[in-house]
């Protein structure tokens, strides 16, 4: 075979885009043609270069430690909500004003005066004043 393989075809071969028969034909040709072999080595490297970006920070660990941590987070949130409710209840109890019950005066039972107290109210002076009115 005198014709050399097109570079695009070699790239397709490298990217495994060709049918099995076509790929075999190229393999056979490369094994016989030195020029195409050199070209195929050059093309082979191209996708590796394009796919060869590496980041410096790839090894960095920043993920939460699995399910346990996520569960703990939820427990923390629930605890915060409960504490919030409890504090709210306490505050409402402290702020609430004392109850004032308004009752009519005549409904309050008055202690009844004893006979002796009634008698002491009739002092000599009162009797004298009373007698003057007559």
């Amino acid at each position: 075979m005198t014709n050399h393989i097109d570079e695009d075809l070699l790239l397709k071969y490298k990217l495994e885009l060709l049918e099995v028969n076509d790929a075999k034909r190229i393999e056979n040709h490369i094994s016989e043609c030195k020029t195409c072999l050199e070209k195929s080595i050059e093309v082979k490297n191209q996708p590796n270069v394009i796919g060869g970006i590496k980041l410096n920070e790839e090894n960095e660990f920043y993920l939460l430690d699995g399910k346990k941590s996520i569960t703990t987070e939820w427990i923390k949130r629930a605890a915060i909500i409960l504490i919030g409710f409890f504090l709210g209840y306490l505050t409402s109890q402290l702020i609430r004003p004392n109850h004032v019950v308004v009752v009519e005066q005549n409904l309050i039972p008055q202690p009844q005066k004893t006979v002796l107290e009634n008698f002491s109210a009739c002092s000599d002076e009162n009797i004298w004043r009373g007698s003057k009115n007559f």
């Binding site: 695009d8 790239l11 394009i50």
Partner: peptide, 10 residues
């Protein structure tokens, strides 16, 4: 698409 993407990059 992969072929053209690689070719453009190349």
């Amino acid at each position: 698409r992969i072929f053209y993407a690689v070719k453009i990059c190349k």
